[in-house]
C-alpha cells in the first residue's frame, strides 16, 4: 500500500488522476474503521490533511464556500450564525474526538443515507464542488447521492467544497437516536426557512436509499405558512407538514428501527422543527 501525501490541491488532483484507485483520507473516521477491520485494502491512501485549500471556508456572493476538510468542531464554533442548520447537525456528530477530525467532505464521500450533514445541506439548497485535473464542476447536493454509499463523484475527482447559501431565516435540525452522543441517526430532519423568498427547504436523513427532500411538504408549507401575520402557526398546518414529510420518506426496516417507526418519527420531527423555526419568525428574530 502506498501513502500519498500531496501538499497542495494541484498535487492532490494530479495524484488522484494518476492513482484513481487511491482512497482519499481526510479525518479518517470512516476510512480507518474500514482499514482496522480489514474491510478494505486499497492500493494507496491519499492524505488530504496537508492540503490547506481544503481546510478553509469563506463567504462569496451570498453563500459560504466550506472546504471539504473543515472539521465539525470548527463548523460548530465558526459557522453557527451563517449556517445554523449545518452547525446544529455538526454538534450531534459522534463525539468531540470525532468532530475534531471529521468533516463534510468525508460525510459526502461516504454518501451514507444517515450522514448528518446531508439533511441541512439539502434543506439549504447547497451544491457540492467537485474537482479533477479535467476541471471543476458543481452538483446540487440532491443530485450528488445516487444510492446507499454511491455518489456522483468520478474516480479521478475530489470533493473540494460545499457551497451553501447563507441562512435567510431560521434553520433547524433534529435527529432520533438512542443517546445524545455517538449515534448514527435512526432518522433525521433538516429544515430551512427563507423569510425573504417565503420558501421552505427540507432534508430527510436515514429514511431512504439516499438523503431526500420532501418537495410536496416544502410547497405546502410555503403556501400555508402565515408569512404576512407570522404570529400564529396552527396545529393543522404543522400536522399536515409532518404527514407530507413522512410520506416523502422511503424507509426500510433495519437494526436501528422499523420503516413504520421512522415514518412516524419523521412526522414528529418535521412538525416540531417547523414549530421551533416558526417561533423564531413570529418572535421577530
Amino acid at each position: 500500500m502506498d501513502f500519498l501525501r500531496p501538499a497542495s490541491l494541484a498535487e492532490a488532483l494530479a495524484a488522484k488522476a494518476e492513482n484513481p484507485a487511491a482512497v482519499p483520507i481526510a479525518g479518517g473516521t470512516d476510512v480507518m474503521v474500514e482499514l482496522n477491520f480489514d474491510r478494505r485494502r486499497p492500493p494507496a491512501l491519499l492524505d488530504l490533511g496537508r492540503v490547506a485549500e481544503l481546510a478553509r471556508w469563506g463567504e462569496e456572493n451570498g453563500h459560504v464556500r466550506l472546504g471539504a476538510t473543515v472539521s465539525y468542531t470548527r463548523i460548530v464554533e465558526e459557522l453557527g450564525t451563517v449556517l445554523p442548520g449545518l452547525a446544529m447537525a455538526a454538534r450531534t456528530v459522534g463525539s468531540p474526538q470525532i468532530r475534531n477530525r471529521a468533516g463534510v467532505g468525508g460525510n459526502l464521500g461516504s454518501a451514507s443515507p444517515a450522514g448528518d450533514a446531508h439533511p441541512p445541506l439539502l434543506a439549504a439548497g447547497a451544491e457540492v464542488e467537485l474537482a479533477s485535473v479535467r476541471g471543476t464542476r458543481t452538483v446540487p447536493v440532491g443530485e450528488f447521492f445516487l444510492g446507499p454509499k454511491r455518489s456522483a463523484l468520478a474516480e479521478d475527482e475530489l470533493i473540494t467544497a460545499v457551497l451553501v447559501p447563507r441562512a435567510a431565516g431560521p434553520q433547524q435540525f433534529a435527529k432520533v437516536g438512542t443517546r445524545n452522543a455517538m449515534v448514527i441517526a435512526v432518522c433525521s430532519f433538516g429544515l430551512a426557512l427563507d423569510t425573504a423568498a417565503r420558501s421552505v427547504g427540507t432534508g430527510i436523513g436515514s429514511a431512504g436509499p439516499t438523503p431526500l427532500r420532501a418537495a410536496e411538504a416544502e410547497e405546502f408549507a410555503a403556501a400555508a405558512l402565515p408569512w404576512d401575520e407570522p404570529a400564529a402557526l396552527d396545529e393543522a398546518t404543522a400536522r399536515e407538514f409532518g404527514e407530507l414529510v413522512a410520506a416523502a420518506a422511503r424507509p426500510i426496516d433495519d437494526v436501528r428501527g422499523s420503516a413504520a417507526y421512522r415514518r412516524h418519527a419523521l412526522a414528529v420531527l418535521a412538525r416540531r422543527t417547523l414549530r421551533w423555526a416558526w417561533q423564531d419568525v413570529s418572535g421577530g428574530r
Partner: peptide
C-alpha cells in the same frame, strides 16, 4: 493540541 482517537489517525497523517 487537539484530542483525537489515535485509532482513527493513519500513521502517515501524523508525519
Amino acid at each position: 493540541g487537539t484530542p483525537v482517537c489515535a485509532c482513527l489517525v493513519a500513521a502517515g497523517q501524523a508525519e
